[in-house]
C-alpha cells in the first residue's frame, strides 16, 4: 500500500475515533454548544472518516493512470490530503468558536476552510476522472499470424 494511501486511511481512522468521542460527549449531556457540536460531529464522521477512507481506497484500487504513473500525479494527491484535513480542522475549531463568540478571525477561518475543502474535492475528481476507464482492448492480431 503506497504511503499516500496509508496516510489517508490512518488519518481517516483517527477521525473515526475523534468523531465517536464527540458523539459520546453529545450523548452524555446537552449544552449551549450542542447544535454546533452536532454539525462538527457529522463532518468529522462523514468527511474526516468516510470521505477520506474512500479517497485513500480509490487512489489505491482504481485502474492505473498509466504504467509510468500508476496513481497519476502523487504531489496533487498530497495537496488533496493537506487541503482536506487543514480545511476540516479549521472548521472544527472555527465553527463552534464563531457560534459562541462571533469574531472576524473565526469568520475568516470558516471561509478559508470552505474554500480548502471544495478545492480538495475538485482536485480529487480531476485526479480520478481519467482513472475511471474500461478494460484495455486485446492487442490486434497481425494478418500474417
Amino acid at each position: 500500500m503506497p504511503l499516500l494511501v496509508r496516510t489517508f486511511i490512518k488519518t481517516s481512522l483517527a477521525y473515526l475515533v475523534l468523531s465517536v468521542l464527540v458523539a459520546a460527549l453529545l450523548f452524555s449531556k446537552t449544552t449551549a454548544a450542542t447544535p454546533v457540536l452536532t454539525l462538527v460531529y457529522y463532518h468529522l464522521f462523514m468527511v474526516g472518516w468516510l470521505t477520506q477512507l474512500v479517497f485513500g481506497v480509490a487512489v489505491w484500487m482504481f485502474p492505473v493512470f498509466s504504467r509510468e504513473k500508476p496513481r497519476g500525479n502523487e504531489n496533487v494527491g498530497w495537496i488533496i490530503y493537506g487541503f482536506l484535513n487543514l480545511g476540516l480542522l479549521m472548521r472544527v475549531v472555527s465553527e463552534p468558536w464563531h457560534a459562541l463568540r462571533p469574531n472576524h478571525v473565526a469568520t475568516a477561518l470558516m471561509i478559508v476552510s470552505a474554500i480548502l475543502q471544495v478545492v480538495a474535492g475538485w482536485l480529487f475528481v480531476w485526479q480520478m476522472w481519467p482513472r475511471v476507464k474500461g478494460p484495455k482492448p486485446p492487442p490486434a492480431r497481425s494478418k500474417a499470424a
Partner: peptide
C-alpha cells in the same frame, strides 16, 4: 457545502 459554510460565516 462550501457555500453553506461561507454563508454561515457571514451570518
Amino acid at each position: 457545502g462550501g457555500a453553506l459554510l461561507w454563508s454561515r460565516a457571514i451570518g
